[in-house]
Design a protein around this nucleic acid. Structure first.
Lengths: 183, 183
DNA sequence: GTCATCATCTAGTCATTGTCTAGATGAAGG
DNA sequence: CCTTCATCTAGACAATGACTAGATGATGAC
């Protein structure tokens, strides 16, 4: 359907291209018109699917939260926190374009229903993962432990994706962090 | 000198205004022309001081790294890691506009001399802060411990500034994180 | 005191972008 | 067959970043 009037899969293709572009040059380098050119449609076509630029990033973030929740499901069910930490960082490294926009409140429409739903699903997954830790390993209130656990995997992922930990193995670092934190 | 031909303090004023705007609406909402209007100069004036948009963010980040190094100096000299962690997060909360661009490689000119200098100074400060931890509290290689320590304060600061930890006290969280990590 | 130098700022221009509007296309279903 | 509506086209507009040539005046040498 690539040469018909109706593209047929434009929304998905735009999201994929946007993720690639964000991973390559950051959110600023994403141009709706460039994405449209790349997809072989006119510059106004993306607006129908995403409304505006913010809508594109919101859709990308929602997709990212969905993928993250999926990526964590196994280890959370296995109640293996160290593996959850590794899987979290591995998700970010494998999906840099998605991850780079997921927590950028300034780029997203926080009121978007799909975003809220996927974000809640991913958040519940994370909470469950930390809730299963052996209490004798946790020296601080459990709610703080949850936030600290999130902060550390987010910190590793963010710093690595921003190039600040260029010479480190992020997965190994996540494992070490889990051990030092709760081991 | 506000109404003379030469502004006299344009560079500093633009940086301050840019920090405020980044804190308010993120880097995307920063417009060189809007900053110029606000400062009462023409749209071309900022280019002389920063070259282009990237140069503005680079200068802002360099200033931020300098401020960060200053903010950490006391506690590092006192070899008090918990306080360093708190001071780090407190710096980010107090200077959200600076912090939001400091690690955004896509917005910065990594080759800038001033940026590299200030970044190195802040990095050395952080390394020194973690290097003084009691060895029997550290279960992982010291280099990983450094990275983990950085990741956790960066994670707390980032998540808080992005609004993901809206109901938490970031300083208290930093203290708790230090205790759980190395306490 | 005068003058040259140069950092600083002005003013105009251009391509590009996001967004809005009206309308064309064609797929899907009654 | 024909209506409906999601999808896409096409044109326009204001705003922006970047570039250029030139005006201004602060500074320091003589």
């Amino acid at each position: 359907m690539a040469d018909s009037y109706h593209h047929g899969d434009l929304r998905a293709q735009l999201l994929t291209a946007a993720a690639g572009e964000v991973a390559r040059g950051g959110p600023d380098s994403v141009s709706l018109r460039a994405l449209a050119r790349e997809a072989g449609v006119t510059h106004g076509a993306p607006a129908h699917h995403f409304g505006d630029r913010r809508g594109l990033f919101t859709a990308l973030a929602a997709q990212g939260f969905g993928l993250l929740a999926d990526a964590l499901a196994d280890s959370v069910q296995a109640r293996d926190f160290a593996r959850t930490a590794v899987d979290y960082v591995a998700f970010a490294v494998a999906n840099p374009g998605h991850y780079a926009v997921m927590f950028r409140a300034d780029l997203l429409d926080g009121a978007d229903a799909e975003l809220q739903q996927e974000e809640t699903r991913a958040g519940d997954m994370l909470r469950a993962g930390v809730g299963m830790l052996p209490p004798d390993r946790v020296a601080i209130p459990v709610e703080q432990a949850r936030q600290v656990a999130w902060a550390i995997v987010h910190g590793i992922a963010s710093l690595y994706l921003d190039g600040a930990l260029r010479h480190a193995d992020p997965a190994a670092l996540a494992r070490a962090a889990a051990e030092q934190l709760f081991g």
